[in-house]
Design a protein around this nucleic acid. Sequence first.
RNA 1: GGCCCCAUGGUCUAGCGGUUAGGACGUUGGCCUCUCACGCCAAAAUCCCGGGUUCAAUUCCCGGUGGGGUCACCA
Length: 487
Amino acid sequence: MTPPRVRIAPSPTGDPHVGTAYIGLFNYVFARKHGGTFVLRIEDTDQARCTPGSEQAIFEALKWLGLNWQEGPDCGGDYGPYRQSERLPIYREHVARLLAEGKAYRCFATPEELAEMRKVQREQKLDLAYDGRYRDYDPKQAEQRAAAGEPHVVRMKVPREPGATTTVHDCLRGDVTFENRLIDDQVIMKSDGFPTYHLACVVDDHLMKISHVIRGEEWITSTPKHVLLYQAFGWEAPAFYHLGLLRNHNKSKLSKRKNPVSVFHYRDLGYLPGTFVNFLGTLGFSYGDDRERFTLDEMVERFEWSRVSPGGPVFDPVKLAAFNADDIRAMDVDTLTSQLIAHLYTPERLRAIVALARERIDLLDDFVPYTSFFFAGKVDYSQVLGKMKIKKRTRKEVVNILKTYIEEIERDPAARGFTAPELETFSRAFCERHGWKTREVFTLLRLSITGRTAAPPLFDTMAAVGKDRARLRLRDAADVLRQQPEW
RNA sequence: GGCCCCAUGGUCUAGCGGUUAGGACGUUGGCCUCUCACGCCAAAAUCCCGGGUUCAAUUCCCGGUGGGGUCACCA
């Protein structure tokens, strides 16, 4: 086989996701197995959702796991740029070509108009779909309106011959056929001039000579649109492999509601990177020989698509922890000692904690017990549960305010850095917004984060505890409270 | 709801027509042991259901059921 070119194409919209690592792993392993190339492309075409710093975070997460790429925005390559926001002229050129050939058309329907259309369709219990209201609009007139600066999108013109179908060959699942009448005239260029995923992905995969598209099952229903785009351009489509989606315990798609999904959570709480990739590798792939512990190199050596199953596996953190425990036991004491020092006692982190502890310890020996909660994963709430009963607030209200806090702090870009000033600004605004006294919320935060009534200043403490550990505890505290009897 | 994907213990999986259905996590019981942990041993599966095909189906085909995904100017 000629050396494959594969890619991972994450969106820099938040913390690096476990699912990205999972798909990245399979791409990486497949490329290496066949001496191919693993490309990293950043899909930052949604200006509203991209957050600063998350591109860097993706680099960090993949490197931590050892999933190294040969071409990407940081290291370049022959097919760059590797950031979609830097490829806008390329997309415009390709859209212009489709427009000129009548394979796409401009649509002037406003978002409100389309929302109204869907509302009517819903009421009449029709299929939700774009009704093609601009599909046959006079191109000359459309060009005039566009030239005059009227906002609009560009849609692909899906072939509508009666009975027409589009077949996607999935190498893991076989042929999957879709009726064209059920495929929307998808928007390929948004009114802000940015391409949508569908267009950008097809154009880039072609131009970057991607031979195998290995991605999550969530994409399988949009693959016919991609196939149609390849046909419209007259290009050969790559081979498609849709892997099952990682699931929560209730089988729904892995989500932060139910599980920590940031790769950094696992890194910062002391999971070993080799263990983590090994665990991801056991989901969907099987080594055979009743063996499930293997290194990345061993997985590469053994990898074959016939060893990959298409079902969506449940991501079980308990089993992951058991793997980690095994690997810790297997380390000699010296290695483990240095790993522990590197993980817990980095000079910067230790210094930050010492600064907070100095005025509160009398003997050097007081340090460890006083600061234990900075290092633990979860903390014990049994001693402080009573203190979480905020006067005039029901248990449910307390649980909800904690949950809301978690949700909002994850979403707020201003709190991304998780520094003390950011946290304070965010938290004060949060109290204001929800009509809670700072005293009430700050108490809850302190108890949840530290498991104690007395601790160093809250926001410095939160910052030193770290984002993922803090999030874990807030969620855990909310869970513990939820299971308490009403007060 | 339409379309699409998937289906071996609670979970991850081995199996590729004939097996006492194997391993791992978890659970339960036991052993080891100054405690705990580790370690060791053991227990638990209508192979989703119903039809076919076949001398023979967990394995192949069809239908059902169940679960999931997707139906945006998000990816």
